[in-house]
């Protein structure tokens, strides 16, 4: 890589605006900017490993600064994959998801038993188990019929008229509400029975669920995007606060997705090793949290400020790495958007 210090002014302007000053010289030295660099400049190698998305940002700015008016996204150098290649990974994931649903049915049976016996602690344990298994289905794309079943199993009261009093509010979170706010346990039994039936139905239709390659590749980061948005924020688990537990299940599901995609990601932009390294860091954080809380994961509210920062930081690193996965697994060249014919152009006048 040529070490040039004569980077055009425009490059410097772009970079100065975007990035911390100490990085500027390293970047401009490392790459003259005439093409997208594929490896980190030696001085940045350690940081690139830790934060791969930053490296790609630096490179993009390097390209843009020199070639004014060039497309804002450098074209991907990778040839598209055949969509058929997703068949095996998706079949493997469906099998994994089916086995999780089987385990979930067992947990719901335990839940029903604990509710009938009036044992709140045991019921909460069984609920955690059932909820965890469900979150491990993270990559099943929730559309159509599945979306309706998902609403019944895992739906939140937020979007329902009447909120928690809506008759459509029946699933895991209705039971969560009762278990953590002191309602009579026997009143929750009908919800547990309905949950069991809905899960059985989902398990029946699961083998026929189709996921597009793009959707499946996207789930590689969306499972943990959901965890940040819905679980660690507390939005989806307002009563139990079990967002950290749910996040651990999201990590598990994400690892399963990456495992199935391993053959496809081989030699695709070094995405997989980087993502795996970030996930390993995140798992290490989970272990530290468990160690600090007597062997179990803390609830959101039990995280100290330092622990919350530690977890959020590791999540951010993992997500930036995982967000590179879909781009590395394109099944088509970027489609060209048709132009509005010149003769058809009409401008709205103010």
């Amino acid at each position: 890589m040529a070490a040039k210090r004569t980077a055009p002014r425009a490059l410097l302007v772009f970079v100065v605006v975007a990035i911390a000053v100490p990085l500027i010289l390293l970047v401009t030295q490392a790459d003259g900017g005439h093409r997208a660099a594929v490896a980190a400049p030696p001085e940045l190698a350690v940081y690139a490993e830790r934060a791969p998305h930053v490296l790609s940002q630096l490179n993009a700015y390097g390209v843009q600064g020199v070639v004014r008016g060039a497309p804002s996204t450098p074209p991907s150098a990778l040839p598209p994959l055949s969509p058929d290649r997703f068949n095996v990974p998706e079949a493997e994931y469906r099998a994994f998801a089916g086995s999780q649903l089987g385990l979930m049915e067992g947990q719901i049976t335990d839940l029903e038993g604990a509710l009938a016996a009036g044992d709140r602690a045991a019921a909460q344990d069984a609920w955690r188990g059932a909820y965890s298994r469900y979150l491990e289905l993270g990559a099943v794309y929730l559309e159509g019929q599945i979306a309706t079943l998902n609403q019944a199993i895992d739906g939140n009261p937020g979007g329902l008229p009447g909120g928690i009093r809506s008759p459509q509010f029946t699933g895991l979170h209705r039971i969560e509400l009762g278990l953590w706010t002191g309602g009579p346990l026997s009143s929750l039994l009908p919800y547990a029975h309905k949950l069991a039936a809905d899960v059985r139905e989902l398990r029946r239709v699961l083998p026929s669920v189709q996921i597009s390659p793009l959707d499946y590749a996207t789930r590689a980061h969306e499972i943990l995007e959901d965890a940040v948005r819905d679980l660690l924020s507390g939005t989806d688990v307002p009563w139990s606060g079990e967002g950290v537990l749910g996040t651990e299940d999201g990590i598990l599901a994400t690892k399963e997705v990456l495992l199935t995609l391993k053959p496809l990601l081989f030699k695709r932009e070094n995405v997989l090793p980087v993502a795996n390294a970030q996930l390993a860091t995140l798992e290490g954080v989970m272990e530290r949290l468990k160690a600090a809380h007597g062997g179990r994961l803390p609830t959101n509210g039990e995280l100290t400020q330092e622990q919350a920062e530690l977890l959020d930081n590791a999540m951010g690193g993992a997500l930036e790495a995982l967000a590179q996965v879909p781009g590395a697994l394109e099944t088509a060249y970027t489609p060209v958007i048709p132009r509005i014919p010149r003769s058809a152009v009409r401008i709205d006048q103010p």
Binding site: A344, R346, I347, D348
Partner: peptide, 26 residues
Amino acid sequence: RNTGAPLGGTNEFEEPRYDLDPHGYR
């Protein structure tokens, strides 16, 4: 994102001409 023009167009205030794109290709 840059111009604000409807996809396929060049001017922010250009009509998106859905009438010419009934299937949503553009």
